[in-house]
Design a protein around this nucleic acid. Structure first.
Length: 560
DNA sequence: GTAGGGTTAG
């Protein structure tokens, strides 16, 4: 079949660009082949770009491979497509191919190449590309220079960023944004603000960049102030601010700001939704989380991996493990984070075996685990008391995936060994660590000592804890209780004296909270602040009575 | 070519 004679090349290019499905694009490729125009660089460039927009990177690679003489534009499209789909190494590979084939790169080639180097942290390659840019003798190009500003600042080489920026003959919003971001990355918010103020006309992106800079620097107040002063906020401004509250554990404010956002005409996108669902997870706000889930389902056809992971995590943290599982199995696309949330949810609810078999299933699907997921795997072993399994997985982590254990993995292992009474082995593991053990590690050991009544090792742990957290009364109290239990009252007096001497204060008691009908209720031990306090305590009394009827004896050894 | 996203041991 020939296409109609009235179709010019330009006509076809336009049709290719406006395709909305891969099937449509592919059928155009069939036509290109039949008409013998599959070697036409201009048309193939359009085809590659169209595929790239539709997430079909494999089709672009195939089409490229069929071409005998791809030109500069085709290479540029390929390199751009790879960067767009997070395959920077392939992008650089095509760049090298291009040079080998004697094609001179243009100003449209370099930004993608430099970005690839930035993503891969290829310092040497990036610097050499900068040299190539200078040697081409092309006039300085604002896109290339912006990419260089970004490249150097991501390496912490702010002076070079500034130099490139200062040499720029003209600067657009992107360039200013990159420079503000460069200073912010270096932690120099004063300079970031100065560049922001120097800029002739600020745009939404530069405001957002600066706000994000303050968020990263931990200056929530400045971020808030800027956000309030903004005249034209877009979805990124709102999301940045919602994320700001999440980063600083002010989840309630995050959800409140989201509500405020919904009263404007700005629509939340995937990033906003995953952030706010995660905030609900941390709050244990099930009703609100469900509402977000509903909103997501109403407004989009499928759930992306970020929102999927956030939902799984939210349902698991709110106690609805079945819902978490349902969400997990319904996901069309799953990545490591989806598996991670699911495995962690299972482990958290005590389903150790299930968590481990889920992990094995993930391996079968050729998803490479990272160090974080191993924390959940080891925690599952701890909660299930699976010592041998835990040891095996701990070793496998390094031997199979080359993941060096971090302090949190040691934490899990120490906890695992301690709970079953292997205290010496735990101490040996602590001594073999590549890093300085922190209070969590010693705390886990102390917990094991308490459980298995080992005063000698407990003393070792407390000695370390007194140095690491001298003001935490909890560890002292625990040791006092242990000595009291062993009737060693002189030791009790000795530690009490140390506490008094060091002025160790009793810390505030921990509290818990629950959401009922979108209202948060907070409780601390023995408090009577809640309006329904009396009623709650009477229910507790009933529960207490029922427990006793079932033969439960409260463990009062440590209540002195 | 610039700006916003995720899970973790006690």
């Amino acid at each position: 079949m020939q296409w109609p004679a009235r179709f010019t090349v330009r006509h076809i290019a336009h049709r290719l660009r406006s395709c909305s499905s891969l099937k449509e694009v592919e059928s155009w490729y069939g036509l290109l082949l039949k008409n013998g125009t599959a070697q036409d660089c201009f048309l193939m460039n359009q085809y590659i770009t169209a595929c790239s927009h539709l997430h079909a990177i494999d089709s672009t690679i195939f089409a490229f491979a069929q071409m005998e003489n791809p030109n500069l534009f085709v290479y540029n499209a390929m390199i751009g497509a790879f960067v767009h789909y997070f395959r920077p190494l392939d992008g650089l590979w095509y760049y090298v191919l291009m040079l080998r084939n004697g094609i001179r790169p243009s100003s449209y080639t370099f930004p993608a190449v430099i970005k690839s180097c930035r993503v891969l942290s290829f310092v040497g390659v990036g610097t050499s590309v900068h040299g190539q840019v200078l040697r081409t003798g092309l006039p300085l190009h604002v896109h290339v220079q912006t990419a260089l500003v970004d490249f150097y600042s991501s390496l912490g080489r702010i002076l070079e960023s500034t130099k490139v920026f200062d040499e720029m003959p003209e600067r657009d919003g992107f360039a200013w944004s990159a420079m503000i971001s460069a200073h912010a990355r270096a932690g120099d918010l004063d300079s970031a603000k100065r560049v922001f103020d120097e800029m002739p006309e600020n745009n939404t992106a530069t405001w957002n960049t600066l706000i994000h800079g303050y968020v990263e620097a931990g200056d929530v107040e400045s971020a808030e102030e800027l956000f309030c002063r903004m005249v034209k906020r877009d979805v990124i401004s709102w999301t940045t601010m919602i994320n700001c509250y999440c980063k600083h554990k002010r989840y309630r404010e995050a959800v409140e700001l989201f509500r405020e956002m919904k009263s404007t005409e700005i629509r939340p996108d995937e990033v906003t939704m995953s952030t706010v669902i995660s905030a609900c997870a941390h709050l244990g706000a099930l009703d609100q989380g469900k509402e977000m889930h509903l909103y997501v389902m109403q407004t989009r056809s499928n759930i992306d991996v970020y929102i999927g992971s956030a939902l799984i995590d939210m349902y698991a943290k709110c106690g609805l493990l079945e819902r978490a599982l349902l969400t997990f199995f319904k996901l069309q696309e799953k990545n490591l984070f989806c598996w991670s949330s699911m495995i962690d949810g299972l482990a958290f609810h005590g389903y150790a075996e299930e968590a481990l078999s889920m992990f094995d299933k993930m391996e079968e699907e050729n998803i490479e685990p990272n160090s974080v997921i191993y924390v959940s795997v080891l925690a599952a072993c701890t909660h299930g008391g699976l010592v041998e399994e835990g040891k095996r997985r701990f070793l496998e982590m390094t031997s199979r995936y080359f993941i060096l254990p971090g302090i949190e993995h040691y934490g899990c292992m120490v906890d695992l060994l301690c709970r079953v009474g292997l205290l010496e082995e735990a101490l040996g593991l602590i001594r073999s660590m590549r890093m300085q053990p922190n209070s969590v590690i010693w705390g886990a050991l102390l917990g094991g000592c308490k459980l298995h009544k080992n005063l000698e090792i407990a003393q070792v742990a407390v000695d370390r804890l007194m140095i690491l957290e001298p003001n935490n009364s909890g560890y002292y109290t625990l040791l006092i209780n242990m000595y009291a239990e062993a009737n060693r009252w002189s030791e009790v007096a000795r530690i009490r004296a140390i506490m008094k001497d060091r002025g160790v204060l009793k810390i505030w008691p921990g509290s818990s909270w629950i959401e009922v009908k979108k209202k948060m209720h907070q409780f601390a031990a023995c408090d009577n602040y809640h309006p329904a306090s009396e009623e709650i305590y009477s229910v507790l009394d009933v529960l207490d009575l029922q427990l006793k009827l079932f033969g439960y004896e409260p463990y009062l050894d440590f209540v002195l």
